[in-house]
Design a protein around this nucleic acid. Structure first.
Lengths: 205, 205
DNA sequence: GAATAAAATGAACACTGTTCAAGAAAAAGT
DNA sequence: ACTTTTTCTTGAACAGTGTTCATTTTATTC
């Protein structure tokens, strides 16, 4: 049995990720503490640092899993490819709101967690974020066939960020945020306006 | 001289707020440390807690000043009241982007700072956030005269949050954020689309 | 100018994330 | 099967937080 070492190590990492996900779900990202985490995972405090570089990297693994789930949710929400682009964008926005509400603390962790100053995000995690915008390119292309690939990528980021901003301020409970019971209708209205406006206008991309 | 006490106390508070603002500007909100702060303010560590309840409340005072400056910037950017609403919204968005870029760390502090779980924002600071949305009501009313006051307030929050989301992800340097050199053009395009779409459509408010 | 009240001080405390010498466990050698 | 060597695991100790509070210093009052 040459893989007992690796098996144990993989098991420890999995237990730590699961415990971290549970702690974030229960107490938010600021409530994630190394001691409570390792106790729940059934290992010693120091074991955390044999499995991951530090707490930040563990959080990145939790975020990677959340992003993967979110990506699948968005893809599942896409209507048929020949559906009108408005329908696709509304379905994606609706699925995004639903996911954020149903996975509140984990979703907020995606955007509130910040690496220490000077620490760059590792490459393996950068790509995980692409799921947020890649599904937008096809409907936006249908809406704006005049834009080239680069402009479409930019417009995807902007479109995502606009919807994201509304959801974020609402779920953070900010004073200027929309109340939760009006979040879906406001997002629908925003996507509706953006879609009609984009359809209509041919601004400088 | 009965006011020597109060004068000193007010001076200490002012020095602490100024030092905190400077520290946040230089090192971000996570780089604000009680010891460095009090050293720069020229007082003892414990003096901080005679002037403010805790560090969080001091940050709220810094944020209040930032919001006041931002509010004046937005009001100064407003065109004449009879200007077309598109022009007003574009001017406000442009001023918002400029302010965020020119006061990056202080602006980010407005939205990245979170009170400890269970601590509610004090009343005196809640109202400070209103400047972000109150300037939007008039142009949105011109754009959508069919909406009542409550719906206009909601639409103001949503419109603000949409622009805010694009600026936030860009200035945080998130992977899905728009690059800084394209931020203004993308925000312009977003406001343009939202404006035309709102002008056109009469969705359920 | 003494007595009293108020405020400033910084060492000490409680709680973080992280490290590392010491011990336990596994693998290799004979 | 037992020893040796390597590897991994452990949790006490460390460095860095925000916050408190007995003590000292300062301001006000009589």
């Amino acid at each position: 049995m040459g893989n007992s070492r690796e098996e144990k190590r993989a098991d420890l990492r999995a237990r730590l990720i699961a415990a971290a996900q549970d702690q974030i779900t229960q107490h938010g990202i600021t409530g994630l503490k190394a001691r409570a985490l390792t106790t729940q995972a059934g290992c010693a405090l120091g074991a955390l640092y044999t499995a991951f570089e530090d707490l930040d990297m563990l959080i990145l693994h939790v975020n990677a899993r959340t992003l993967a789930r979110l990506g699948e949710t968005l893809k599942a929400a896409l209507p048929a490819p020949d559906a009108p682009p408005e329908a696709a964008l509304q379905a994606l926005a609706s699925a995004y709101v639903d996911f954020a509400c149903a996975n509140r603390a984990l979703w907020i962790a995606l955007f509130e967690h910040r690496l220490p100053e000077g620490v760059e995000m590792p490459d393996w995690h950068r790509k995980d974020h692409a799921v947020l915008i890649e599904v937008l390119i096809a409907p936006l292309h249908a809406l704006r066939p005049d834009l080239d690939e680069a402009a479409l990528v930019m417009r995807s980021r902007t479109t995502f960020a606009a919807v994201h901003g509304v959801v974020l301020l609402a779920l953070q409970g900010r004073f200027v945020g929309v109340p939760l019971d009006q979040l879906k209708s406001e997002v629908t209205a925003l996507v509706s306006a953006m879609t009609r406006g984009a359809h209509l206008g041919q601004d400088a991309g």
